[in-house]
């Protein structure tokens, strides 16, 4: 019961934060759901953030490769990013064997990579995308950390 309350609290604050970030910065590299869920999973086991980073970088490279080489865009690229993220995360799960695991986590890197690519295509630079997303993640993580300490 307590778990549901703290998860809901973190997710709710994540959605509100995401909305204000989008309203202010006009970009949303984390999408609506991905960043709050990533924060939740990282709070459960901080080591899986390493898996996220590696899967994210792989997805970004895959997207860039397929866009440049085959001119892919849109939904086809999104599916590709999800697939790469899923495969890389699964392999890293096996190698690193974290204490916490969930399938949804495996596609988060793909969602964020695709959203970042969309923002990049729209003319936003890497620095802004990274800064905006990371600051949103850190703020929510700190909030989540406080909630986890209380409960």
């Amino acid at each position: 019961m307590v778990d549901i309350i703290k998860y809901s609290l973190i997710l709710s604050v994540g959605f509100i934060l995401g909305y204000f970030y989008y309203t202010y910065f006009k970009i949303s590299p984390g999408g609506v759901l991905a960043t709050p869920f990533l924060v939740l999973y990282t709070l459960e086991d901080p080591s899986i953030f390493v898996i996220f980073v590696l899967a994210f970088v792989s997805s970004i490279f895959a997207i860039d490769f397929f866009v440049r080489r085959f001119l892919l865009y849109g939904r086809r690229l999104f599916y590709l990013a999800l697939l790469v993220s899923l495969v890389i995360s699964a392999v890293l799960y096996l190698l690193l064997n974290p204490t916490f695991s969930t399938v949804f986590f495996s596609i988060i890197a793909g969602i964020i990579a695709y959203n970042s690519h969309k923002e990049l295509m729209g003319g936003t630079d890497y620095i802004k995308i990274t800064t905006v997303w990371f600051s949103e993640f850190i703020l929510l993580y700190i909030f989540g950390f406080i909630i986890y300490s209380i409960y």
């Binding site: 865009y73 729209g122 003319g123």
Partner: peptide
């Protein structure tokens, strides 16, 4: 959309 505008410029 912003995305397709960027894509058209890329293309």
């Amino acid at each position: 959309s912003r995305y397709t505008n960027g894509y058209i410029h890329f293309l």
